Simulated scan of single mutants.
Amino acid sequence: MAEAVGARLVQAGVPHAVIDLDWLRHCRPSPADDPFHLELELRNLSAVARNYVDAGVQRLVLAGVLESRADRARYAEAIGAKLTVCRLKADLTVIRKRLVSRHQHDSDLGWHVNRAAELEKLFASAWVEDFVVAADQPVAEVAQDVISWWLAAERLPTG
């Protein structure tokens, strides 16, 4: 989805970078007290964001999972800018279908399916997002909805 948002930004002539946060923390083993390598991800994000801004990027599109408002504040600090968070929401049957197609040959498919259900419960109570976009529609429509909500959020007065 993030790449589709990036494609829309290309069409609009907006200097941007799309960052898959999973790759900023992808190394093994993970510390026992940080199983998702959040600390490494944030350090890497800070450096990468700074490099992109130095290169003229005006927008960062981050693809990842935010589990708490405290984490949201840490990500904003890492990028050194206001963070607008979009939650992509789809029915768990749709998510399961996508996971099966993406991880059909992986031994950890079950983990991904269980994690999706766990995250759905967490997101329902965490209220980390600024807006929610239905992700069980075609990717191009999801990207357009994300851009539309993002622009609307930027026009709102802050604090």
Rank of each mutant, 00 (worst) to 15 (best):
S46E: 15
A140S: 15
V65I: 14
L119N: 14
C86Y: 03
A143Q: 13
A81N: 10
W111V: 13
L99Y: 12
R102I: 10
A55R: 11
I79C: 08
V57A: 11
V100Q: 13
P31Y: 02
R115Y: 02
W149L: 15
A124Y: 05
V128G: 07
D20A: 02
V14Q: 07
M1T: 14
D108L: 11
V61R: 02
Q137H: 12
H16K: 00
V133A: 08
R87W: 06
F123G: 09
G80F: 03
D33F: 04
D54M: 00
W149A: 15
G64V: 05
L99G: 14
V61T: 05
R72H: 04
A73S: 13
L156Y: 08
R43K: 13
T93E: 11
L45I: 06
D130V: 04
V53I: 08
L92M: 07
A134M: 09
Q58A: 09
T93V: 11
F131W: 08
D33S: 08
L62I: 08
L151I: 12
V14L: 03
L62T: 02
W111Q: 13
R50Y: 03
A12C: 04
P35I: 09
S30C: 02
S46C: 11
A49T: 03
E39D: 12
G56I: 07
L119G: 12
R69M: 06
A78G: 08
V85K: 01
R59E: 14
H112E: 15
R43C: 12
R8Q: 12
A117V: 14
V142C: 13
D33K: 02
D136V: 10
L151G: 15
N114T: 12
G6V: 05
R155I: 08
H16Q: 03
I19T: 00
P157C: 15
T93W: 05
T84G: 01
V61D: 07
R98G: 06
L62K: 05
G80Q: 06
L60Y: 09
